[in-house]
Design a protein around this nucleic acid. Structure first.
Length: 531
RNA sequence: GGCCGGAUGCCCGAGCGGACUAAGGGAGCGGAUUGCAAAUCCGCGAUUCGUGGGUUCGAAUCCCACUCCGGCCUCCA
């Protein structure tokens, strides 16, 4: 079955064939090289779960391509340049997001909780939130951050998760190219604008054709005398008073908020990419403008596939700062939710459906993860024993372990579902339909267990919730847990069940779940707080 | 005003013209098992897919109308 993805650009499902396909035309993903750019966060505040839904969608997509044995080069920007926030004054007179972050930082410093040494320095503030973002993304298992952490040096890290403040020279070069070929102009006010009238395809992605943009009743394009067309957007704005500013041929100032993605994507991935991802709100104007900039400069198709995830709702309402109904990763982990539970809850519905987030959805996710992890735990011992005896020869790469028919069928169905525009609900159904009977069986022999475990490892390359370790307990807590487990063991030997139950409750309060089996008691960290 | 999506059991969510007596997950109830739990097992639960029409031999799936919900239209993932 061909791999079909919904392409916002064509407004339809299209077969995904990489620009650099693999050698087998019947399976172009196997051995392909895929260039993928994912719009990342603006690091001016703590990212919330809605932001992470978009990043996790890109992550699942990337991991699925890898599951199909493509090699993926994924780049995700971390925007550390502030952009204007006041849309009524969208062309530059509004307040800058990093400026706002700086104000907030100063306020927290006054309150005695300094996160950075100098809250007046927007670069320090951006660095602070960048680190917070990276830490959150790590706990959620974003593969792009694993790439970043594996990178050999600063330049290699930059090539994975670039920061615009380090690429101002590239922006200037791109703007010069657009000026040279007539897609941009310097207006009377000294601002460099993109000339949307010069780009025929403007509006193709979003459906916002130029005439409609100008006349739509709710359209907020602002007619400024200096612009040729109300929809023209600025590429560089000279402003000596701006908080973050750089030298340029057009005077000291700052770049427009679309140029960074065009410039960095093309710098690191080349002038044509396979896939560009983002949240649905990015479609217009951000991605529309990126296409205009990139294709205006190169004359080549910028990205073949544009894929956008719908927004996350919280308790049936749009998530927004004014309503205060958003969660950060920190909010949830502090309540006692394991990050893997958050990951599962955010990826288990299809990316093109708007989905509703509730605390209940985290509990549902925890039940699903616990089941799959229990199954993996059950299969592991017999496999580990044999494979370890065999030494390195026994430890095959996941793709090399041969699967029994039952597992092969499940993997095929899982893959077929994801080929259908990442229909993860159907993919999970295939997984559970296979896993349930397996979990019911007693101890499996080595070949069966090995096949089952290999299948779980393959699907978990996409899901990322079965094999990653749960978060560790703090050392002091762990020591206390160990001591209580010892006490409980003693109590159980003495058949003092009242004491045993009390200890189980105490352990639960410490965040671990105790399980008694014929061979002894085990405990593990709770995935979610007690109900 | 313009442009897009969506409405499936108690909840989440697949299915998009015949194998639907509607996948899968969660919660619930009754029973087995267990010192009690957890896990596991067995059993129960939409004659129905927002409402009303239509097309068809056949519709959750296609068409029309209506109701409701959500998104975008230069802050946003």
């Amino acid at each position: 079955m061909p791999t079909m993805f919904y392409n916002t650009l064509s407004h339809s499902l299209m077969e995904f064939i990489p620009l650099t396909p693999g050698p087998d035309s019947a399976d172009p993903l196997r051995g392909a090289f895929v260039r993928m750019y994912s719009c990342g966060p603006t690091v001016y505040d703590y990212a919330h779960i809605g932001n992470f839904r978009a990043f996790l969608f890109a992550d699942v997509l990337r991991r699925y391509l890898e599951f199909r044995q493509a090699r993926v080069q994924q780049v995700m920007n971390m925007t550390d340049v502030g952009h204007m926030t006041d849309d009524a004054l969208a062309d530059g007179a509004g307040q800058d997001k990093l400026q706002l972050a700086v104000e907030k930082m100063k306020a927290t410093k006054k309150a005695g909780q300094a996160a950075v040494a100098d809250p007046n320095d927007p670069f320090q503030v951006a660095d602070f939130f960048t680190e917070v973002f990276l830490a959150d993304a790590r706990t959620l298992g974003l593969a792009v951050v694993a790439d970043y952490d594996r990178a050999a040096d600063a330049a290699a890290r930059e090539a994975v998760m670039p920061r615009p403040t380090r690429h101002i020279a590239h922006f200037i070069q791109l703007i010069q190219r657009l000026l040279a070929n007539g897609h941009a102009y310097v207006a009377a006010d000294g601002v460099v604008y993109y000339d949307v009238g010069s780009f025929r395809a403007y509006g193709k992605l979003s459906g916002n054709e130029l005439d409609r943009l100008a006349h739509g009743a709710g359209g907020r394009t602002n007619a400024q005398a200096a612009k040729r067309h109300p929809a023209d957007f600025f590429l560089w704005k000279p402003d000596r008073t701006h908080l973050m500013r750089w030298d340029s041929p057009w005077g000291q100032g700052y770049p427009g908020w679309h140029i960074e993605c065009s410039a960095m994507a093309m710098h690191f991935l080349g002038e044509s990419l396979d896939i560009h991802t983002g949240g649905e709100d990015n479609i217009f104007p951000h991605h529309e403008c990126e296409i205009a900039q990139s294709q205006g400069a190169t004359g080549k198709e910028f990205a073949r596939f544009w894929m956008h995830t719908r927004h996350l709702m919280v308790n049936g309402e749009k998530m927004s700062k004014s309503r205060g109904n958003f969660f950060t990763i920190g909010d949830l982990t502090k309540k006692g939710y394991d990050p893997l539970v958050i990951r599962y809850a955010l990826i288990c519905t299809r990316y093109r459906e708007s989905t509703n987030f509730t605390l209940q959805s985290l509990h549902e996710a925890a039940a699903s993860i616990a089941f799959l992890r229990d199954l993996a735990d059950k299969l592991t011992p017999s496999v580990a024993a044999v494979d370890e005896a065999a030494g390195d020869a026994g430890r095959l790469a996941v793709h090399e372990v041969s699967l029994a028919p039952g597992e092969a069928d499940m993997i095929a169905e899982f893959s077929r579902a994801l080929d259908d525009d990442l229909n993860i609900s159907a993919a999970l159904a295939a997984l559970f339909t296979w896993a349930k009977p397996l979990a019911q069986k007693g101890r499996l022999d080595y070949p069966a267990a090995r096949s089952g475990l290999a299948a779980l490892r393959r699907v978990d390359h996409v899901l990322g919730v079965i094999f990653p370790p749960l978060r560790a307990l703090p050392v002091a807590v762990q020591e206390k847990v160990d001591a209580l487990m010892q006490q409980r063991l003693q109590a159980r030997r003495n058949k003092d069940f009242a004491a045993s139950d009390t200890l189980r409750r105490e352990l639960s309060a410490l965040g671990v779940e105790v399980k008694d089996t014929p061979t002894g008691s085990t405990c593990r960290p709770r995935l979610v707080p007690p109900a």
